[in-house]
């Protein structure tokens, strides 16, 4: 897939892969599937991947997107890696709380605190 087609911005810094979303709304099932495949290929390309997903500028997130995040988390754990989430809008954070997914994911206010939480 060419970068122009991607729904993600991916950067690598000091052993951490930072993933950001192009879209404000993560609702379209085809896009969500594409996002899942892109992130899965990043995970598969690394040993013990350390992944930070930033939700800055994301306004809406569907349950299908939550499902993809869970699949990503399961995949990272299988590879002995770590996943952090950051920059989540307060209303979306409430969705994580209602679904109790705040117990499953490591959620941080911003990228620096998320990066600092990775264990070596």
């Amino acid at each position: 897939m060419s970068p122009a087609d991607s729904r993600l911005r991916v950067t690598h810094d000091d052993g951490v892969t930072l993933v950001e979303f192009v879209d404000r709304n993560i609702l379209d099932e085809a896009n969500i599937q594409q996002i899942g495949e892109e992130i899965s290929s990043i995970i598969d390309s690394r040993d013990q991947p350390r992944l930070l997903i930033s939700f800055a500028n994301v306004d809406h997130l569907s349950s299908a997107a939550l499902g993809t995040l869970i699949t990503i988390n399961n995949r990272i754990k299988t590879k002995g890696g770590q996943l952090r989430l950051a920059n989540i809008d307060p209303q979306i954070k409430e969705v994580f709380a209602i679904t109790r997914l705040n117990k499953l994911f490591s959620i941080h206010d911003d990228a620096p605190s998320a990066i600092a939480s990775f264990t070596s």
Partner: peptide, 17 residues
């Protein structure tokens, strides 16, 4: 989907939301 045993399952949250 909020039960501990279902938290890591990717489906089933739409209706509860």
């Amino acid at each position: 989907p909020t039960l501990d045993e279902n938290l890591a399952k990717p489906d089933g949250r739409g209706l509860m939301l």
